[in-house]
Computed example of a mutant assay.
Amino acid sequence: MLRDRMRRDLCDGIALSIETIMNEGPGPAPDPDGGLDRLACYPRLHGALKKLRAQWQGISRAFGSAVGEAAPAGTEGAVDFVRVVEGLRASARREIQSREALELEIRRLGDAALSQQAEIERLQARNAMAELMRQTLTEGCYELAIIGGDIDHPENELRWSDQFRNLIGYTREEFTDSWDDYQRIVNPEDYERLIQAIQDYVARADWSDAYTIEYRMRHKTRGDVWYRERGKGFVDAGGKLRYLIGAVRDISDEKRAACLHDEAISSVQEKHGRISQVIDVIKNISDQTNLLAINAAIEAARAGQAGRGFSVVAREIKTLAAESVDAARTIQKLLT
């Protein structure tokens, strides 16, 4: 009975000591022995519990340093520990949510950038198309307001359209509404002919029909370019010439095509002449061969029986010469 009681007292002392150690905070213990004096009669057990107490206090101090505050003693320490863990979890969730929101914003900005890039490319394509259309337009207009039907009146007003300026590659500042700028870009070899054509049209006093003339102007970057001008006069209430309005068109492609056509015709004519010369040579050779065949036939007839084989050869040569002449005549007919 006494032994059992001692065992129970020992177990109770150990349990009390462990509870005391677990309930202590990281700070200095109010009781240096911390309730371990009941087990002083068991030196090994007493020393082990004191070592456990010291280790527990070290863990508590380390935890309190990690969370930035000392954990209070008792069950409140466990509650604060749970709160700290929950706070860390909440911070982690907020971090994840912030990262997801950031990734979503990055994707949104990426989509917006792609959309803006697509819009930029679409506008660039439209600008390129507009530039191409501007370049393919080959007509520009002009208007000459005539005072009193006098084409040489100093107060006559000349206006060029912007499309005309685009046609010759100049800006409004570089090419003004003046005859001087116009004369400056018209080829000198064509200017007198151009002015003469306009004066003849004005002088005939019948402006129901249009005049047409082709001449060269100096493009800003392309050099001399061929243009076709078509103009028509309009009268006022008194029957006098009031306006001379015309359109100018770039015909450089037409001139280039006409030049290529002329070159092709010249080449064909040159080859035709050479072929005709060859045909004449063939005809001459055929005529000579035909004469030789006739002479050979005569000589074969004189030779009698010995010349029969030679006579057959002469006859075939004559036939070949006739066929050559016929072929040459057929080729000559095809060329004419």
Rank of each mutant, 00 (worst) to 15 (best):
G309C: 10
T75M: 11
G304V: 13
A101E: 07
V278F: 13
L39E: 01
G169M: 01
G140N: 08
S115Q: 08
G307C: 06
G309L: 11
Q199C: 07
D209G: 04
E263L: 12
F164Y: 14
A205E: 07
V281I: 11
L49C: 06
R193C: 05
R159A: 15
P188V: 05
A112E: 09
V312I: 10
D150L: 12
D37T: 08
D4H: 09
T138R: 14
E105N: 06
I18Y: 02
Q196F: 04
G307S: 05
D33E: 12
G223M: 02
I282V: 14
R222Y: 05
D287Q: 15
I213R: 00
A327G: 01
A128R: 13
I331D: 00
M129R: 09
S324W: 01
V84F: 04
S91N: 10
R5N: 08
D262T: 15
P26A: 12
E76F: 04
K255N: 09
I168N: 01
A327T: 02
A327C: 05
R165P: 03
G110E: 07
R315F: 04
S208Q: 11
L241R: 03
D262S: 14
L144I: 10
G149L: 07
I14N: 01
A297T: 15
E263T: 11
K51E: 14
E316T: 12
R218E: 02
D162Y: 13
A264V: 11
Y215D: 02
Y227K: 01
D181S: 06
Y227C: 00
L241V: 06
S65H: 12
R44S: 13
D37Q: 08
A125I: 10
A71R: 00
F81N: 04
G246W: 00
E316V: 09
L291M: 13
H46K: 07
T212W: 02
K220H: 07
K232W: 00
D150T: 14
E131V: 11
A118P: 05
E229W: 01
L104H: 08
A118N: 12
D12V: 10
K220I: 03
I147D: 03
A197S: 04
A113T: 11
